[in-house]
Nucleic acid binder design. Structure first.
Lengths: 269, 269
DNA sequence: CGTAAGTTTGACAGCGGTCAATCCTCGTGG
DNA sequence: CCACGAGGATTGACCGCTGTCAAACTTACG
């Protein structure tokens, strides 16, 4: 049985707060936290001996039993499905995901892209089962956090509730900001905002914010931004012609973040 | 000091769950719950004697002190402002509100319309103050629920946290559904969805779902649906010409909800 | 090597945005 | 009581952005 070190999820929940609030070196702390949750392992049960380091402190005791072993998901596999009963929240340990909803016609809308440290499945907390599907964009690892940890009197922990409430508040703000974006700007502004968003995710995880690899397809990006994939492709090509960035397949090199910011902030439509 | 009867907010939190889950007569219960919170009163402090009926049961005791007297807001006044420190959640007692975000240019995006029983200000729970503004669309009453009730050990109540988590989950689902709508259908489908949404709100509160008065302007509707006000006006006129509804100023009579459903569900782009 | 999936690019049409004029309703003040 | 002005709503004209359809190309993978 794995245990949750103190603050690990709490720190993660603060990840998307204004960066000024995070102290330097916080990323290392977070990585350490996640590493302490257990080594990556394959889905097949392996009896590898568990290192119980850190299991004996107080916070770990309070949350003991709340987190299971990480699960490895191959690209395209789903952590949970829309309509499925709500059993777990999922914390991304490695890799990336998209969460999407499908309507009765089969068209699906991407709600969010998730990276290490992100919590998936919050919509299930409304009580009606999962209302979205989480699909791995590459081979990824997730921690499953059983929902029973919320209702079980033995595990009830106010701080864990507060972490959750904070995460959900951030999710709500994220969605509002997305709405604001869609109402304010056209295809170029939306794509610029998306690229800057990705860039920020990369920076927050210690990768280069100026050069990165997108794991999602053009169709996924289009769905996320309420655009057709052709429009996304065209806008990328145009931005490349304008010298704002270089795009090779899914590899992006940003040359002028300033230009992207202008498109995001001032481009009417 | 007013007290919160057992389940009152909890019942409200279930308001937007699938209707199949709500039992008949639930609306009367909800009204009774809100009525028990206190009579409507003007903002000026009036020393009218407080009826303490129901104050002595266990649930009321647990939540005692969490709810203040309702506040009367005139049309156009704000319950809270974007950027303001987060001090209260607000439960609508009577009237209606819009919550909106403004960007650096002053353009504002309506996120949601709120009616009696709705909880406003959930975005403040992320920890960074209010990220939106709540504006009364008519003379309205709200209950202010101090955020201190969340952190104060004396008032800590797991069920209250769970109510909040459930409300936030529903808010997240609502936003996802809105995104799905925007990506799927064009102006007519969006407007049809909006009218059916309003219709459902009216039905849930005991008013006629086929004939009602909209308190929001065309500009507000357009902002909410990511459309210009002229497009909203045009679409309304066209729907009227098609016989789906009658529109007189802000008074709506729906003649064919079926036609609206078709527009919402099947109309591409 | 062949098939499938993803991407790019082109042509074209239409929806919705923009600008503008007019109308209507309501509140205010003469 | 009426005149006036402001804000909201409607309608028209125009056009540009983006969706749609289609074809060609590249890469990945069996």
């Amino acid at each position: 049985m794995l245990v949750l070190p103190p603050h690990s999820l709490h720190l993660r929940s603060l990840k998307t707060l204004p960066l000024g609030a995070s102290r330097p070196g916080s990323r290392d702390l977070l990585d350490a936290d996640f590493a302490a949750l257990g080594r990556p392992r394959l889905p097949a049960a392996e009896g590898e001996p568990e290192s119980r380091a850190g299991a004996s402190n107080a916070a770990a005791l309070v949350l003991d039993g709340m987190v299971f072993a990480p699960r490895r998901l191959r690209s395209g596999q789903r952590a949970f499905l829309q309509g499925e009963a709500f059993r777990n929240l999922y914390a991304v340990r490695a890799g990336s995901f998209k969460t999407s909803m499908v309507d009765h016609d089969g068209r699906d809308q991407v709600n969010r892209f998730c990276f290490p440290g992100d919590l998936m499945g919050l919509d299930g907390l409304a009580g009606g089962g999962h209302s979205s599907t989480a699909t791995a964009l590459e081979d990824s690892d997730v921690y499953a956090v059983p929902v029973t940890s919320l209702g079980d009197p033995a595990v009830r922990d106010i701080s864990w509730h507060e972490v959750l409430i904070r995460c959900m508040g951030q999710e709500i703000i994220r969605q509002h900001a997305q709405l604001l974006l869609l109402g304010r700007v056209g295809a170029f502004g939306r794509l610029a905002a998306f690229l800057l968003e990705l860039s920020e995710e990369m920076r927050a995880r210690g990768y280069s914010p100026m050069e990165f690899h997108m794991r999602m397809s053009r169709a996924d990006i289009g769905s996320y931004l309420c655009l057709r994939l052709e429009t996304v492709s065209r806008a990328l090509s145009t931005l490349e012609q304008q010298g704002a960035l270089t795009v090779d397949r899914r590899h992006i090199v940003i040359h002028s973040p300033e230009q992207l910011q202008v498109l995001r902030d001032r481009d009417p439509s």
